[in-house]
Amino acid sequence: MAAKAISSPVPVDWYPTLAVVMVAVGLMFTASFFIYEATSSRRSRSLAKEITTAAIASVFLGFGSLFVLLASGVYV
């Protein structure tokens, strides 16, 4: 019987690095989102741009927090 070992999709050793990088990138996008919100007036804002920045930031923060959990030993 040829049983194949199953391993994680991302090597476990990368989790801490990935966590730091993705949370950092995510926070940068969050910062740019809030800077944009604060610096533009209500009329000159573009909803598309806001949604795009928010989406990118949440993808990075979401995966970032997952890797933070995995790197700290909370295997979800």
Partner: peptide, 21 residues
């Protein structure tokens, strides 16, 4: 699990956008 985390963060952003609008 990652999709759950992503949607939670995204909901926060949506709330921010809604508040500022």
């Amino acid at each position: 699990e990652p999709l759950m985390l992503i949607s939670a963060v995204f909901l926060f952003f949506v709330a921010c956008i809604a508040y500022l609008h």
